[in-house]
């Protein structure tokens, strides 16, 4: 122990020294000379998946081509991440929470218009869904969406304005209400309004919400990504929370694509494309499944089928007519989400 402590002090000292002496040279230059460098700009809960996947892919790429590749990661709320790419964050690939955010980047001319057809399965190598995380023993007996609008239930979900996951949450609740009210939009709006009246904290991203629920102990139920729920149980909960699967949820399709303008500029199209395609290989699919994303490759999906509960899943295209329409109706300024918080709304 002593030795390592000294080592740390020494290293911090070295860093300090290095700063004062050498450099005004941006790190990227130093790093970017010999090896290919990819920047993957992603949303909140994929940190763990890509940490592992990047290492596996780098090894695979080195074996195949003999060249090294370094993959850098940036994570945050999906909206923030897309905004950064639009403003010039030079992402070679984006792996975001929903298609709308990539469409926004594409609208600014950075990505080909038909990006979603470039890779199989609408460019979604894995899918997920939204489930509930409740306190151990489910003391408030939360079984389904209809329980979330009861007056004494506190619901934790992030802000749909900034979080992709939160938009999926919102739409899942809306879809549930539609189905149980025979497609009555007004009833659905009332349902969702009552649900959000029970939300005491709106964090800006999925991660913030999980922290609020699990670590700060606020709320009775957290609506979150299935993968995030599993991960939170493993990493944080350790017997303090459990997963509840609602009767109906939404099929979440987090898409991936290369950013054309950037890869052409960096000359990284080949490795970037290979990187994303590797997500579709058996190896990539297994990793996704291990991190609780639902694989799309039939063989792997079958193998891990026991992990993922069967849920009735509605789709964004089927219920809401695609992301552009859903975004305009619900999340744009003045949309249904804003109206919830209007006085008397």
């Amino acid at each position: 122990m002593q030795g390592t402590e000294v080592g740390t002090v020494y290293r911090i000292g070295l860093v300090l020294l290095a700063c004062t002496t050498t450099n005004l040279i941006p790190l990227s230059r130093v790093m970017g000379q010999e090896r290919a460098v990819l920047l993957n700009v992603s949303y909140d809960p994929t940190r763990e998946l890509y940490q592992d996947f990047n290492a596996v892919f780098a090894e695979h790429w080195a074996n195949q081509t003999g060249t090294a590749v370094t993959i850098r990661q940036s994570h945050g709320g999906a909206g923030k991440q897309a905004r950064a790419v639009i403003d010039g964050l030079e992402a070679d690939v984006v792996t975001l929470a929903l298609a709308y955010d990539i469409d926004e980047i594409s609208r600014r001319g950075l990505i080909d218009k038909h990006w979603q057809t470039r890779l199989p399965n609408n460019s979604c190598p894995y899918t997920s869904t939204m489930v509930f995380l409740v306190r151990k023993g489910n003391p408030k007996a939360i079984k389904d969406w209809s329980d979330l609008i009861k007056p004494d239930i506190w619901v934790i979900t992030p802000n749909p304005k900034t979080s992709g996951g939160a938009r999926w949450n919102y739409l899942a609740a809306w879809g549930y209400a539609l189905k149980h009210n025979h497609g009555d939009e007004a009833k659905a709006r009332e349902f969702v309004t009552r649900l959000y009246k029970n939300v005491p904290v709106l964090d800006s991203g999925a991660r913030g919400s999980t922290t609020t629920f699990v670590h700060r102990g606020i709320g009775d139920v957290l609506i979150t990504w299935e993968n995030e729920a599993f991960l939170a149980m493993e990493k944080l909960g350790k017997g303090s929370v459990e997963i509840v699967v609602p009767s109906l949820s939404i099929l979440c399709e987090p898409p991936v694509t290369v950013v054309d303008k950037v890869v052409d500029k960096h000359g990284t199209r080949k490795v970037a494309t290979a990187y994303l395609e590797y997500l579709y290989t058996e190896q990539g699919q297994r990793l996704a499944a291990m991190y609780h994303y639902r694989p799309t490759m039939a063989a792997v999906a079958e193998e891990y089928a026991h992990k993922f509960p069967e849920i009735d899943l509605l789709t964004i295209d089927g219920v809401f007519g695609g992301w552009q329409q859903a975004q305009q109706a619900h999340f744009a300024d003045g949309g249904t989400f804003d109206q919830i918080y209007r006085p008397g709304g």
Binding site: G77, G79, A82, R83, I86, E104, N159, K161, A332, D333
Partner: peptide, 11 residues
Amino acid sequence: VMKLEQFDYAG
């Protein structure tokens, strides 16, 4: 910040 993240620069 929220407006910015919704690509609403003018706002």
